[in-house]
Simulated scan of single mutants.
Amino acid sequence: MTHKVALGVEEEFHVVDLVSRRLTPQAHVVLDGLPEAAFSAELQRAVVETNSEPTTDLAALRADLVGLRRRLMASAAPHGLGISSAGTSPLHGAGGFSLTADDRYQYLHDTYQFIAREQLICGAQVHVDIDDRDLAVLVAQRVEPWLPALLALSASSPYWFEADSGYASSRAVAWQRWPTAGMVGPFSGAAEYDQAVADLVTAGVIDDAGMVYFDIRLSTHVPTMELRICDACPLVDDVILLAGLFRALVVRETAAIEAGSPPRGDVRPTLLRAGHWRAARSGLEGDLISPVDGKPVPAPGLIEWLLEDLRPTLEQLEDWPTVAALAADALARGSSAARQRAAFNQRGQLTDVVDLVLKETAVG
């Protein structure tokens, strides 16, 4: 059996007033009394974050994430607040554009202006252990062509500022406005990666290495690789699916590098950027760009192909039954973006969209 590599998840959530269904800057109310190690504030006071414990087991990860969500909801409910997991929340409140009091967040606002003010978005981030930083940089670049498929699976932000954006993931498009967002590399190893980050600091683009927002980045303080491309997901099972797929990609490409095998996917920057846009545009309900030949392919077909391609690794990790079942369920029900639009189309009310996401977020 392949060594069971540890992984963990950070989830970001919107804080919603249950009467108006609008965002409300009351993260501090929800966080009051919760442990800082597992629950934290974000740039916007209408967003909270949870951090799971590292584990090698997907079932344990799921139980942890469900428990963290339930604790958030239990803290929010007495104040008339709800916890919503999606890339964006359809209804904004005037108080939603309120930054958390913190020197770092003040720097982000002063430097990036409207990009920071409009950062009312939530993501799901997966961390996978990898000790060798040189190897991690190479693995990240080989995993990168497959990230649009993971974005498509997570797409949950069709609404942007109370209107249909036309995208399955408006969050992914908004995120790309940050000057360090997007593709990693090309880098030959950790020295080049670290020098590029240092150059960004010297140039005044960022204040420190923690402000690097690559789709995959190396942690600045622990030996992990972070997946940062995905929307927050209403359903916990979709988060587990993403975590399982990402870990398998990392494990497979690590072994491939050690064996001297060539990359499986096309790593041309133009194709990668187009693939990212395509996934954000249509999620699971349209075509993705195949990183194998650059041709359009229906999203479910590409994800099923990726799943079979990863099957040997998933079986070695003993994750195959779980990940295969979760993938089948995700493809059968379609993206969160499509479900949100269906909810809106029933009565033409964005409150119905919020209610759907709140309900799905609470499903354990």
Results as ranks from 00 to 15, higher is better:
residue 116 A to M: 00
residue 273 R to P: 03
residue 16 V to T: 04
residue 2 T to H: 10
residue 349 Q to V: 08
residue 137 V to P: 15
residue 364 G to F: 02
residue 8 G to Q: 01
residue 301 G to L: 02
residue 297 V to M: 13
residue 205 V to N: 05
residue 192 E to Q: 15
residue 51 N to R: 14
residue 230 C to F: 07
residue 225 M to L: 15
residue 324 A to Y: 08
residue 215 D to C: 13
residue 284 L to F: 00
residue 281 R to F: 02
residue 329 D to T: 09
residue 104 R to K: 09
residue 270 T to S: 10
residue 55 T to M: 11
residue 174 A to S: 11
residue 253 E to W: 08
residue 213 Y to I: 00
residue 181 A to W: 04
residue 325 A to C: 04
residue 149 A to N: 05
residue 318 E to C: 04
residue 247 R to H: 14
residue 160 W to P: 11
residue 222 V to K: 09
residue 168 A to L: 04
residue 259 A to H: 05
residue 317 L to D: 03
residue 303 I to Q: 02
residue 119 Q to T: 13
residue 92 H to N: 04
residue 193 Y to A: 04
residue 281 R to Y: 01
residue 196 A to I: 04
residue 189 G to N: 00
residue 279 A to V: 02
residue 289 I to E: 08
residue 113 Q to A: 09
residue 151 L to I: 00
residue 137 V to D: 11
residue 165 S to E: 09
residue 121 I to H: 05
residue 127 H to D: 04
residue 20 S to D: 11
residue 326 L to E: 14
residue 14 H to E: 08
residue 355 D to E: 15
residue 278 R to C: 08
residue 311 R to Q: 14
residue 35 P to T: 04
residue 49 E to Y: 06
residue 332 A to C: 04
residue 243 A to H: 07
residue 335 S to M: 05
residue 9 V to D: 11
residue 65 L to R: 03
residue 19 V to D: 14
residue 176 Q to W: 01
residue 223 P to Y: 05
residue 308 E to S: 08
residue 329 D to F: 05
residue 164 D to E: 10
residue 79 H to M: 05
residue 33 G to H: 12
residue 44 Q to N: 00
residue 290 S to A: 03
residue 243 A to I: 06
residue 333 R to C: 05
residue 143 V to G: 08
residue 233 C to D: 07
residue 236 V to G: 07
residue 295 K to F: 03
residue 257 I to D: 03
residue 62 R to T: 00
residue 267 V to E: 14
residue 82 G to W: 01
residue 114 F to Q: 12
residue 345 N to A: 11
residue 290 S to W: 01
residue 51 N to C: 06
residue 252 R to F: 08
residue 275 G to E: 12
residue 281 R to C: 02
residue 19 V to L: 13
residue 15 V to I: 15
residue 265 G to C: 00
residue 179 P to L: 12
residue 321 P to A: 07
residue 295 K to H: 09
residue 17 D to N: 14
residue 353 V to C: 12
residue 306 L to H: 10
residue 264 R to Q: 09
